[in-house]
Write a protein that binds this DNA or RNA. Structure first.
Lengths: 352, 352
DNA sequence: ATGAAAGCGCTAACAT
DNA sequence: ATGTTAGCGCTTTCAT
């Protein structure tokens, strides 16, 4: 990083932002009249309206939403809280964008924060958002139990859980069909004739990870594959560990003929390991979660795709619906995953 | 999407959130004492402190940051505004995350919104953030001139521009070395012997796009390549258009021997087109912006990588520094791009 | 159609 | 060490 050019002075001329009172004074009207204009309330003559608008633009007045919400009966801040895994990852980004789109149509902004699957961070983030008086909270969790939220729910803040189901709390929930998707991936490999299949799992304390693990073993059980034929490796929480784990598997005397990787970055690590050993054409691979360019890799990667846009859209609509007074029973919305056949998942077992 | 299970009642028991006054009453102290405890001010005995903390936890009190900021001398809301291209795209996501990380260390949250390179949207988004009284604003722009922000800057809100340089405003700026990076990409292709090179550009009214275009032609000028040997296609603003444009190029009687694609999704479209025509091994390609799995494609994709994390980190530190009273002159920080050689950019020209 | 006064939850200034 | 009062910018309530 280099400083290339500079100019002027960075000083803050701390002149204050104009207030409604100043607008009223300039327009020669009462403050309540300005409030009426700003909030598009009825009962202002055209002449008065124009005077107010002129004063607003002359002063560069920007209404203070939070100050207004203080006295407002509904106490709305027009702000939604969102806790996702990590705003930098594609899944979270798509959820974030979907929530933003639904909220923006109503003038609602989104405060999004990253959880990093850190249980200690969860409560801090919830508190950070609540202290900013978000109208509703859409959240992914990392703790084992969310009953600490019961008082907050009682205080009237709608909570919508995404990606993971809460424990100890009744609420609206939006999740992928993790176990079903994982089972479908596994059945796909079994149908191609594979038996010696490796499972690559994320941290076992993460709910989605254990669901996918369950789906994997459910599918194996259906065809009665003995438990010791498969290899399950858990607690892989980054790409490098995934790559190392898969490389070790491929170096076994009797390497697996197929791999089911249960998460995005794990799939990337697996691809790198397979290419590193030149075994990408002789080992089947199905990944959970789609990847950009997955169709351009050789062989192209067969995946179980989630639908983060649908998850975010549904979650936002649930939250906004609750704010609109929807009192229907809480429900769990399961967004289906989809098998995308591209090649890597259709590689047959090596001849024995 | 299916509704699978339901339970209980979604009703909002609109019991209100406890206030400082209620905490004070329960603890048997004055409201200012509670304020001292909450804000970790000195001058509270241990016994009193404990009483307050007990009342806080008993009531589930959450401090209202915005109500507090109203009377606070510095008027800080502990909230930063961020306008990025699109929270769902990897570049913006990385910037967002970097800003979040720097801000979170000081208890500051980030309100991020998506611009979509829509000039009309820009002012609305700025206003939406200002009406929420963000302490500072980090923004990517789409309009031709940002002098409409001068009054806001005069009101004391620090503005930091990222990715694009403002026009009509003196401010802190953080950008990639777009022209230099594009020139480096082009020189790399020229060095391999290419002359018939195609340039694939984003919307010409986007500043970064025109900078990259300039860098491309600068490099061509250095070796005196006649203008009519190259093909420049602009205003490609999505992957499908990129794919169609490249396919058309490849179908020419005399197709280009090399392609410089000046943006992420355009590169993806170019890769798809090359593979679609089976010409990925006979046509060189360098893309601006790195892609996940770019190293796994055949051939692996040579790119000019940006550093969005550095951009976000620097921008956040600049904004926070201004809030801390930094009055040094405004500066433009140029974050260098980096050529990553992977194979696609080193393909030689086809024999004539 | 318009405005004055009170008060939302909090902090600043000034008590004690 | 602790409390009281005023007031931040706004909406509500109630006048006119």
């Amino acid at each position: 990083m280099t400083t290339v050019s500079n100019s002027s002075d960075g000083a803050n001329t701390r002149s204050h932002r104009p207030t409604m009172r100043q607008v009223a004074a300039l327009a020669g009207v009462g403050i309540k009249t300005v409030s009426r204009v700003i909030n598009a309330e009825a009962g202002v003559s055209t002449a008065t309206y124009d005077k107010v608008i002129n004063a607003v633009t002359a002063l560069g007045y920007q209404h203070d939403i939070y100050a207004g919400s203080l006295r407002r009966t509904d106490r709305r801040t027009l702000t939604l809280g969102l806790i996702v895994g990590n705003v930098a990852n594609p899944f979270s980004g798509a959820v974030n964008r979907a929530v933003e789109d639904r909220a923006a149509r109503r003038g609602i902004a989104v405060l999004a924060v990253s959880l990093d699957d850190d249980a200690r961070r969860e409560q801090e983030l919830v508190s950070a958002l609540l202290r900013r008086r978000v109208d509703a909270l859409i959240l992914t969790t990392a703790t084992a139990n969310q009953s600490y939220l019961l008082p907050e729910i009682a205080h009237g803040t709608p909570f919508v859980f995404v990606d993971r189901e809460p424990v100890g709390v009744e609420a609206d929930i939006v999740v992928s069909d993790n176990a079903i998707g994982a089972a479908n991936a596994t059945r796909h490999l079994l149908a191609a004739g594979h038996r010696r299949i490796a499972f690559l799992g994320d941290r076992h304390d993460i709910q989605t990870a254990s669901e996918r693990r369950r789906g994997f073993f459910d599918a194996l059980g259906e065809v009665g594959v003995p438990r010791d034929v498969v290899v399950a490796i858990d607690d892989i929480d980054d790409e490098l560990k995934a790559r190392a784990a898969v490389t070790a598997l491929l170096d076994l005397a009797d390497p697996p003929t197929a791999i089911f990787s249960s998460q995005n970055l794990i799939t990337v690590g697996a691809i790198r390991a397979l290419h590193g050993r030149g075994m990408q054409h002789s080992t089947a691979l199905v990944g959970f979660d789609d990847l950009l360019l997955a169709d351009m890799v050789e062989p192209a990667i067969t995946v179980i795709a989630q639908d983060p846009t649908a998850i975010g859209t549904i979650a936002a609509d649930l939250a906004l619906g609750r704010l609109d007074g929807d009192r229907s029973p809480f429900a769990t919305h399961v967004v289906p995953t989809r098998l995308i056949v591209r090649g890597s998942g259709e590689i047959p077992p090596r001849a024995v």
